[in-house]
Amino acid sequence: MSAPRYGAEPSKVTRTIILVVVAIVFVTPLAVLAQFALRVGQPNAKGVQAYGFQHFGDIFNPANALTYEPLFQGITNSLVICAITILIVLVLLLPTMILVELKFPHLRRILEFVCIIPITIPSIVLVVGFIPVYSIVAQVFGSSPWTLAFAIGVIVLPYAYRPIAANLAGVDVVTLSEASRSLGAHWGNVLWSVIIPNLRRGILSSVFITVAVVLGEYTIASFLSQNTFQTALALIQQTDPYVSAIFAVFALLLAFAILLIIGRASSFGRGTSRRKARKS
């Protein structure tokens, strides 16, 4: 018999019913997408559908190389854009956040405001402004896909900012840097071997969120006529919906797996540090 309940917690039965119903409703379309990717041909006269891995083979069949070329090109482009966007986060955003924390704490609110703005401006609105800006960018850098990283870097700002800011709030960087400076460390040393290691968790999660946002970005790429993973998926969907379904399922599962691993890793980390704290 369970103890009398005072607080907000639901009973075990209620919880199970709610979660099972939600799980079924949310897994259905994704399971159907996976099932769709395994369909072979049309259902026969009795309405029986054949299944197999035929469409997986199609992807690697040299005869189809031309059809799927945009997809592989799009994935490559997205990975390049990903790398440059991460660089923007690590080289532009991160040092600025640390600098503001150390030297200009009164600017913290302004920096936060600037970084949150992209959430309030829909991508489709920014696109209207990006089109004229990119006609100039194209003159300077050419119209290669990697230039898209500048625009996507802006979309990423709010997501990348938050984990680092949360981590910064929990670490007293001012005291840390003063301590290491008084022990004779150079500014480079302070940054590289004192501050950055303390922000590892925040930096790591903002990098992973950046990867997810870049790989999921569709709006800007499609209007600036660049071929990325998402625009390629949308394109292939027109000619070979099975293959785009395969890639969609794999992308979703991969993103889920990555987030799950980060989540488990950080909770294990928290668990051990708490245990250590209790021992001491």
Partner: peptide, 25 residues
């Protein structure tokens, strides 16, 4: 962790792929 990860994937990453899933469903 499972609920959080699945939520993040659907909330931030889904877009185009959700459209496919619903066309198939």
């Amino acid at each position: 962790t499972i609920v959080d990860s699945a939520s993040s994937v659907l909330a931030q990453f889904g877009g185009v792929m959700l459209a496919f899933a619903f066309i198939a469903t």
